[in-house]
Simulated assay, not measured.
Amino acid sequence: MAENVRGAHFDESLTRLVAAVAQVAGNDRAECSVYHRDTTGRVSVVLSGLVNPEVVERIIEVAKAEVGGYLRDDYPVRTESDIGALRILNEGLTAPVVRVDEFKVRFIDRRVAGADWLVASGDRASGIPRVTFASIKGGVGRSTALAVVAAHLSRSGKRVIAIDLDLEAPGIGTMLVVAGATSDFGALDYLVDSGVQNPSLLRASDYIAGSFLGETGAAVSIMPAIGTSTLKSPENAIAKLSRVYIEASEEGDGKLYHERVRDLLDRLAESGQYDVILIDARAGLHESTAAAISVLRRRRTPVRKRPAPNIFGLHALAFSYVYLFGRHV
């Protein structure tokens, strides 16, 4: 490595690139350009407007010295006339505006995993209430809290459907379903099935079972993570998990995981059979947890001081949303 090139860390890479643009081309140019981080974590910038080639070369020189290995090798600094630059500039028109030191810049963050955390959950015009039970740490009583709320709503006359989106460690299906009445299929099956065919071909009733929680009140229905079909063919469980989070094929709905989750909830809400949807999410900051949170109209996050991992995870999640979408969680 050349002596004038310094090592960089992920957290500093974008800041150093913005500073390099500002140093050479000025603050205004730094703020009106679009910054991009690829799936490997390397950063680049597309400069807007007409820029002298000598300025571009100087920015690259400074950026290489400051950003180091986190600067893209190919086209680290582009102008409007370069290949692919206009596409990024157009995408930047709707990209989040993030604060980088004293600058506010347009930032596109490419991700292979964790892309669902980039989805902003906006207000929904209609639909029944949807409540997600999520936690950063497992074993804190998330599923138990859902069961208590479902029972209370049932006794209040509300028809409830609870969906287990903790696909890799299912819980409420075995906890709350009437013994011997587990559905043939579950949420895992629905999300995989809808990825390869039109969801309208799927009968929602095949994925839903009854719960004993509704025996003394309004009906409580459960969509377990898995059904009897997976229990009979356990060798298919991991095969389905390996496919559920990827983008659906063109033969299916062609949608990402969070979009298929949202469509499933919309379908249940529009059926007229339920008054409330409860969602049991996976613990941690997994892709599936993002989908379970992004389907909400509003987010409310109760925070406990201990254990410490909960606080770190909540801080990471909250600051990511504020950073990318400029809103409080």
Score class of each variant (00 low, 15 high):
residue 46 V to R: 09
residue 10 F to T: 01
residue 307 P to G: 06
residue 247 E to W: 00
residue 60 I to M: 08
residue 97 V to K: 13
residue 150 A to S: 13
residue 121 S to N: 15
residue 279 I to K: 01
residue 291 A to K: 10
residue 234 P to F: 07
residue 236 N to Q: 13
residue 217 G to D: 10
residue 145 A to H: 06
residue 270 E to P: 00
residue 211 S to F: 05
residue 11 D to K: 14
residue 34 V to R: 03
residue 309 P to N: 03
residue 202 L to V: 09
residue 53 P to H: 04
residue 26 G to T: 00
residue 71 L to A: 05
residue 219 A to N: 08
residue 311 I to A: 11
residue 76 P to V: 02
residue 300 R to M: 14
residue 112 V to T: 09
residue 127 G to L: 03
residue 288 S to Q: 14
residue 221 S to H: 14
residue 277 I to V: 15
residue 147 A to C: 11
residue 17 L to Y: 03
residue 65 A to G: 12
residue 8 A to H: 02
residue 315 H to C: 01
residue 109 D to M: 02
residue 205 S to W: 00
residue 45 V to P: 09
residue 159 R to E: 06
residue 63 A to N: 09
residue 215 E to F: 07
residue 148 V to A: 10
residue 236 N to K: 13
residue 319 F to S: 12
residue 163 I to M: 08
residue 67 V to F: 02
residue 115 A to Q: 11
residue 27 N to Q: 15
residue 45 V to S: 05
residue 49 G to R: 12
residue 51 V to K: 04
residue 19 A to I: 05
residue 245 Y to M: 12
residue 323 Y to F: 14
residue 232 K to W: 09
residue 248 A to Q: 06
residue 77 V to G: 05
residue 266 D to F: 03
residue 259 E to L: 05
residue 239 A to S: 13
residue 210 G to I: 10
residue 198 N to Q: 09
residue 143 S to V: 08
residue 42 R to G: 00
residue 88 I to Y: 02
residue 192 V to S: 04
residue 175 M to V: 05
residue 281 A to I: 09
residue 132 T to Q: 02
residue 131 V to S: 01
residue 184 D to Y: 06
residue 40 T to D: 11
residue 104 K to Y: 10
residue 129 P to G: 12
residue 184 D to V: 10
residue 279 I to P: 01
residue 63 A to I: 02
residue 175 M to A: 12
residue 83 I to L: 13
residue 47 L to G: 07
residue 132 T to Y: 01
residue 259 E to D: 12
residue 143 S to N: 02
residue 249 S to Q: 09
residue 61 E to V: 03
residue 66 E to G: 00
residue 292 A to I: 08
residue 57 E to G: 15
residue 105 V to H: 06
residue 95 A to I: 06
residue 55 V to G: 01
residue 38 D to K: 00
residue 202 L to D: 04
residue 289 T to Q: 02
residue 216 T to H: 13
residue 121 S to V: 02
residue 17 L to H: 03
residue 88 I to W: 01
residue 275 D to P: 07
residue 261 V to I: 12
residue 302 P to H: 05
residue 70 Y to N: 03
residue 54 E to P: 00
residue 17 L to G: 05
residue 231 L to G: 10
residue 286 H to N: 09
residue 130 R to A: 05
residue 126 S to H: 10
residue 309 P to G: 07
residue 76 P to R: 02
residue 239 A to K: 14
residue 18 V to C: 09
residue 178 V to E: 15
residue 258 H to E: 05
residue 287 E to W: 00
residue 135 S to G: 14
residue 66 E to Y: 08
residue 30 A to Q: 08
residue 207 Y to H: 12
residue 274 Y to M: 04
residue 298 R to G: 06
residue 23 Q to Y: 10
residue 278 L to R: 05
residue 202 L to F: 05
